[in-house]
Simulated scan of single mutants.
Amino acid sequence: MDYGFLGWIVVGLIAGVLAKWIMPGKDPGGIIVTILIGIAGGLIGGYIGSMVGLGGGNLVNILLATAGAILLLWIYRLVKARQA
């Protein structure tokens, strides 16, 4: 199933919530920034997944998006910690 850009945004919203749940803690931007990072992670995860031939199932797409969101959230926390 091909979600397209809008579908990956919706999946990214879910991924942002899951990433926040998997990586609890105080984020510099709060839940809104975490969800936006989830959307970006969903788009990046979807893009990379489609490039390597992954995807097609709802669970795979959510896992790809969540992995992308977790990675971006981790990078975001590292950058913010160094700025402080």
Results as ranks from 00 to 15, higher is better:
7 G>P: 04
12 G>D: 03
25 G>N: 13
30 G>Q: 08
1 M>H: 11
55 G>T: 09
66 T>G: 02
14 I>Y: 04
25 G>V: 13
58 N>F: 13
54 L>R: 05
39 I>C: 07
20 K>P: 06
18 L>K: 07
51 M>W: 13
69 A>T: 11
32 I>P: 02
54 L>H: 11
21 W>V: 15
64 L>T: 14
31 I>C: 10
53 G>T: 03
1 M>P: 11
7 G>I: 09
68 G>C: 07
64 L>K: 04
8 W>Q: 06
4 G>M: 09
55 G>W: 00
4 G>I: 15
41 G>F: 12
40 A>D: 04
57 G>C: 08
26 K>E: 15
43 L>R: 03
22 I>Q: 07
42 G>K: 10
40 A>Q: 07
42 G>E: 11
77 R>A: 01
49 G>Q: 04
18 L>E: 10
84 A>D: 11
8 W>A: 08
1 M>S: 12
76 Y>L: 06
72 L>S: 00
60 V>K: 05
70 I>M: 08
47 Y>F: 15
73 L>E: 12
9 I>F: 01
16 G>R: 05
8 W>V: 13
83 Q>R: 07
16 G>A: 06
55 G>K: 00
24 P>Y: 11
16 G>T: 15
20 K>Y: 06
65 A>S: 00
39 I>E: 04
41 G>K: 06
38 G>F: 05
45 G>F: 14
62 I>V: 04
47 Y>V: 05
6 L>Q: 12
58 N>I: 12
41 G>E: 14
84 A>V: 05
65 A>Q: 04
66 T>I: 03
28 P>G: 06
13 L>F: 14
26 K>P: 10
14 I>T: 03
81 A>N: 10
42 G>A: 10
20 K>I: 15
83 Q>A: 15
61 N>T: 01
3 Y>V: 05
49 G>D: 02
23 M>V: 12
8 W>L: 02
71 L>T: 12
39 I>Q: 08
34 T>C: 05
61 N>Y: 01
1 M>R: 14
3 Y>W: 13
18 L>D: 13
16 G>S: 07
1 M>T: 12
77 R>V: 01
47 Y>A: 01
67 A>N: 08
53 G>A: 01
36 L>Q: 06
19 A>N: 08
44 I>T: 13
32 I>T: 15
16 G>H: 06
55 G>S: 03
3 Y>G: 04
75 I>W: 08
75 I>N: 03
54 L>M: 03
53 G>F: 06
5 F>E: 09
65 A>L: 01
83 Q>F: 08
43 L>Q: 09
20 K>G: 13
82 R>C: 04
70 I>K: 03
20 K>A: 14
17 V>H: 11
39 I>G: 03
44 I>W: 02
68 G>Q: 07
18 L>R: 12
74 W>Y: 09
53 G>V: 01
11 V>S: 09
2 D>W: 15
64 L>F: 08
76 Y>V: 04
41 G>D: 08
30 G>V: 03
26 K>S: 10
62 I>W: 06
69 A>G: 14
31 I>F: 14
4 G>Y: 10
38 G>M: 09
